[in-house]
C-alpha cells in the first residue's frame, strides 16, 4: 500500500498496487451513472434475452440436462459468459477509447497517477461492471425461479474475480492494439471458442474427451464449474479451490503482463 516511495524504475516488472487506483475507478463509475440506461440494456438486457429465448426455444428440444430443466442449466452458464463479455468489452473498447481517442489516461498521467494505477483502476472497474450485470441477472433469474436457494449469492464474489480475470486478459490485447479492428482477432480466436467450449450452453462431457481436457485451459470453464453448483443448489466440486486458484493465476498473470506492456507503451 505504501506507494509513496514506490519507484517505477526500480520496481521491476511487478505492478505497483496502491490505493491511487480508486480515483480512476471512481471516474468510470461516474460516467457509467450518466449513461446507465443504455449500459444496463447492453450488459444485462442482452444476455437476459439470450437466456429466455434460447432457454425456451432449445429447452423444448433438449428437454432436461440430468435432472435440470435446460433453462436452469443455461442460466448459470449465461451469467458467467455475460460477465466475461461485459468485462472484456469494457477493457477493450472503452479502455482503448480512453487511452487513445479521448486521451483520458494522458490527463491522468499528467496528474500524480502512474500507469499501474490506471491499469488497476480500469480492470477493477470492468470487474465491477461485470459484477453489477451478474447481480442484476441473478435477481431476474431468481424471480424466474431459475435459482435454487440463497447460496447463489456466493456466486457474486466469483463473478467479481472472473470479471477481473477477463478484464485483465482483454487489457493485454488493448495494450498491444493499434486500432479497434485488432479486437476482432481476440473475439474470433479467443472469446468465441471460450464461450462455446466452457460448458455454458451444454455440459463439457458432451465434447470429445481430448477437446474437453484441452478446454480446461480456458478460465471460463473454471468459473462455470464453481458458479453452476452454487446457482442450482448442488454441492461444490471437491476441487473448487483449485478452480478459483486457476482463475486467480490467470488474472494475476494477465494483470502483470498488461501493466508491463502499457508501461512500455505509455511511459517508454
Amino acid at each position: 500500500m505504501n506507494a509513496r516511495y514506490a519507484n517505477p524504475a526500480r520496481h521491476g516488472v511487478l505492478p505497483i498496487v496502491s490505493r491511487r487506483f480508486i480515483p480512476v475507478w471512481r471516474r468510470n463509475l461516474l460516467v457509467w451513472r450518466k449513461l446507465m440506461v443504455p449500459s444496463i440494456l447492453g450488459n444485462f438486457g442482452e444476455p437476459l434475452l439470450y437466456l429466455i429465448v434460447l432457454g425456451y426455444g432449445f429447452g423444448r428440444l433438449v428437454g432436461d440436462i440430468g435432472d435440470l430443466p435446460y433453462m436452469v442449466f443455461l442460466a448459470s452458464g449465461i451469467i458467467c459468459s455475460s460477465a466475461m463479455f461485459t468485462a472484456s468489452f469494457e477493457a477493450l473498447y472503452s479502455a482503448y477509447t480512453r487511452m487513445t481517442v479521448q486521451q483520458t489516461w494522458g490527463a491522468m498521467l499528467d496528474a500524480p497517477l502512474l500507469v499501474d494505477d490506471i491499469v488497476l483502476g480500469e480492470v477493477s472497474w470492468a470487474a465491477t461492471k461485470a459484477l453489477m450485470g451478474a447481480t442484476a441477472m441473478l435477481v431476474v433469474a431468481s424471480l424466474l425461479g431459475l435459482v435454487a436457494d440463497w447460496k447463489a449469492v456466493l456466486a457474486l464474489p466469483v463473478m467479481l474475480l472472473a470479471g477481473f480475470c477477463f478484464a485483465a486478459c482483454a487489457m493485454v490485447i488493448t495494450a498491444v492494439s493499434r486500432s479497434y479492428d485488432f479486437f476482432l482477432y481476440y473475439f474470433t480466436l479467443v472469446m468465441t471458442p471460450m464461450l462455446l467450449l466452457s460448458g455454458v450452453f451444454f455440459p463439457l462431457e458432451e465434447l470429445p474427451e481430448l477437446v474437453a481436457a484441452a478446454a480446461h485451459l480456458l478460465p471460463l470453464v473454471h468459473v462455470v464449474a464453481v458458479v453452476r453448483p452454487l446457482m442450482i443448489g448442488e454441492s461444490l466440486p471437491a476441487l473448487w479451490p483449485a478452480h478459483l486458484l486457476l482463475v486467480t493465476v490467470y488474472a494475476t498473470a494477465a494483470f502483470t503482463l498488461a501493466t508491463a506492456l502499457l508501461r512500455r507503451r505509455l511511459a517508454g
Partner: peptide, 9 residues
C-alpha cells in the same frame, strides 16, 4: 523519475 509522483503532486 524516482519521485516523479511526488513532484507531479
Amino acid at each position: 523519475p524516482v519521485r516523479a509522483r511526488e513532484a507531479r503532486e
